[in-house]
Measured scan of single mutants.
Amino acid sequence: NLRWTSEAKTKLKNIPFFARSQAKARIEQLARQAEQDIVTPELVEQARLEFG
């Protein structure tokens, strides 16, 4: 299971509600691909840039 830093959680809250669950799934996918067990603000930002 993935842990989220408080900064990453804050960044996730800045994503519009309607896109948040999809973004969260993508962020967690990116973390797993990078073999990380902690979601960082950088991963959230990477996903945000993908979504535009």
Rank of each mutant, 00 (worst) to 15 (best):
G52Y: 14
A25H: 09
S21R: 14
V39R: 00
F17H: 12
K13D: 11
N1P: 15
T40N: 03
I27K: 00
G52K: 13
A25L: 12
F18T: 06
L49F: 09
Q33T: 07
A47W: 15
L2Y: 04
W4T: 00
Q46R: 12
K13G: 11
K9P: 00
P41Y: 06
V39I: 13
N14D: 15
I27E: 00
E42D: 12
R26L: 10
A23M: 15
R26V: 07
A8W: 01
A47S: 05
A31M: 03
N14L: 15
F17V: 11
P41R: 06
T5W: 01
V44D: 00
T5Y: 02
E28M: 05
F51G: 05
A25S: 09
L43D: 02
T40G: 05
A8F: 01
R48Y: 14
E28G: 02
F51E: 04
Q29N: 07
L30S: 02
S6D: 14
F17D: 08
A25N: 09
I15V: 06
D37W: 14
V44A: 02
F17E: 12
N14P: 01
F51S: 05
G52E: 15
P41S: 11
Q46T: 07
A23K: 02
E28W: 02
S21D: 10
N1D: 10
L12V: 03
E28T: 04
T10K: 15
A23E: 03
F17M: 12
R20Y: 04
F18R: 09
R48F: 15
N14S: 12
L2S: 02
P41D: 06
A34H: 11
V39C: 01
P16Y: 06
E45N: 06
P16M: 03
L2I: 11
Q33W: 10
E28C: 03
A47Q: 03
S6L: 12
R20W: 05
R20G: 02
R3L: 11
S21T: 10
I27W: 02
Q33K: 10
P41N: 05
L12W: 08
T10Y: 10
E45F: 05
L49N: 08
W4D: 00
P16C: 09
A47V: 15
L30D: 01
K9L: 15
S6A: 13
A19H: 13
L30K: 04
A8P: 00
D37Y: 14
E50D: 06
R32E: 04
Q22V: 11
E45Q: 07
L12C: 03
K13H: 11
L2T: 03
Q33M: 13
R20S: 02
Q33P: 01
S21F: 08
K11I: 13
Q29L: 10
Q29G: 06
K11F: 10
T10I: 15
W4H: 00
P16N: 05
A8Q: 01
E7Y: 04
A34N: 13
R3I: 13
W4I: 00
I27Y: 01
V39F: 00
L49I: 11
R32K: 08
G52F: 15
K9Q: 10
N14F: 09
D37Q: 12
L2C: 03
K9W: 15
S21A: 15
S6Y: 12
E42K: 06
Q46H: 07
R48S: 10
E45M: 09
A25K: 14
Q33Y: 09
A34D: 04
L30T: 02
E45P: 01
F17Q: 11
S6N: 12
W4R: 00
Q36C: 09
P16H: 06
G52L: 15
A31K: 00
P41V: 14
V44P: 00
R3D: 04
V44L: 03
I15C: 04
E50V: 08
A34R: 14
